[in-house]
């Protein structure tokens, strides 16, 4: 699938296959994301979209094909893994903040221990990102004291504190109450404006229209269609995408 923007590739998936036992979850998935490109991945549940995005920072391993992130191919070698995880931030559906650490500690832990940043510098950086996600006043609190939307914004700030080149979002708004979805999407739109390379698994079609250069539709472990959001949503070529879109729209 070709990129919409032209530029050096940030992520390349080349005929990636993955099985869970006998279950074939990724089938010949090929995708190239160029630098500064924003890709939204959508599809019905069980379509492999989360698995694919989790393969990009190797939370899951693929069995066939190649994944190249920022010029480095993902292998079992721990050093390349460290490099890639340092440069790829991830935001999860269930936030996964560390409940025993304060918001500030959540944000400074990795910069201090992975990037070896001095504590004061890491804290200043964390505060600047907390300001960007508009919750600097919560820095001394614990995750359990924050609302879901606030927690997810902290999770975004935490990932950004590692100053990644690529951000992955795995259904960042799916676990949120409806009234909190907007604040998280606004944060992500703000991030998009900075030119960050983003791959985002989401069903928020409004967000996709506004932000994505390209939408990728996955079903049954394979990429079925991809293209600019307007084109894809107005003129779906396959029955599977038509069905999916009708289900999504009915839900809204």
């Amino acid at each position: 699938m070709d990129a919409v923007l032209s530029g050096p590739p940030a992520i390349v998936l080349d005929k990636v296959n993955k099985w869970y036992g006998a279950l074939h979850v990724l089938r010949d998935v090929s995708l190239t994301v160029t630098e500064k490109e924003r890709v939204v991945v959508c599809g019905p549940s069980g379509s492999g979209k989360s698995t694919m995005i989790r393969c990009i920072n190797r939370l899951e391993t693929h069995q066939e094909g190649r994944i190249i992130v920022d010029g480095t191919e993902l292998t079992d070698d721990l050093r390349t893994l460290d490099t890639i995880r340092r440069d790829v931030g991830m935001v999860f559906q269930s936030f996964n903040l560390f409940p025993h650490l304060t918001i500030l500690e959540n944000c400074t832990l990795a910069p201090i221990w992975v990037r070896k940043m001095p504590k004061a510098e890491a804290e200043a950086l964390a505060m600047s990102y907390l300001e960007r996600v508009k919750i600097p006043e919560q820095a001394k609190k614990y995750p359990g004291q924050l609302s879901g939307g606030q927690q997810q914004r902290v999770a975004i700030a935490r990932a950004l504190c590692m100053q990644p080149k690529i951000m992955l979002f795995d259904e960042p708004t799916s676990a949120l109450d409806p009234e909190m979805i907007k604040e998280v999407l606004d944060t992500m739109i703000g991030l998009a404006d900075t030119g960050m390379t983003m791959v985002c698994v989401t069903h928020e079609m409004g967000f996709a229209r506004q932000v994505a250069h390209r939408v990728v539709f996955m079903d049954m472990g394979e990429i079925v269609e991809s293209g600019p959001p307007g084109e894809l949503f107005e003129n779906p070529k396959t029955d599977r995408l038509k069905l999916f879109l009708s289900q999504i729209l009915r839900g809204h």
Binding site: L59, R85, R86, F92, F98, A110, W113, A155, A159, M162
Partner: peptide
């Protein structure tokens, strides 16, 4: 998810264990 979040941040196994897993 706790271990995954630590992995995604690039923490090594021992740092992940010492700072995230064991305290909890």
């Amino acid at each position: 998810g706790q271990a995954e979040a630590a992995d995604a941040l690039g923490l090594s196994y021992w740092k992940k264990t010492a700072f995230i897993i064991l305290p909890q």
